[in-house]
């Protein structure tokens, strides 16, 4: 395997790992932060819709 191919493979694998990690992180953050980023806002559970009667 030539060096260009090797570096490409490593880059692709690292990228895949980073994408999955960032999506999980974003999902977790959205549970607690309305904006999905790290500002000081917060989600209050009471605004979630309860089951409709």
């Amino acid at each position: 395997m030539d060096w260009q191919k090797l570096i490409s493979f490593i880059t692709v694998l690292v990228t895949l790992f980073l994408i999955v990690r960032s999506e999980i992180k974003k999902y977790k953050l959205r549970k607690t932060r309305p904006c999905g980023s790290d500002c000081n806002c917060a989600v209050l559970k009471e605004v979630s819709l309860k089951k409709l009667k």
């Binding site: 959205r30 605004v47 979630s48 819709l49």
Partner: peptide
């Protein structure tokens, strides 16, 4: 848009 679906999940709690 996955982010929108996540927010809908959060706001509807389901």
């Amino acid at each position: 848009c996955m982010s929108t679906l996540t927010v809908v999940k959060r706001e509807t709690n389901s």
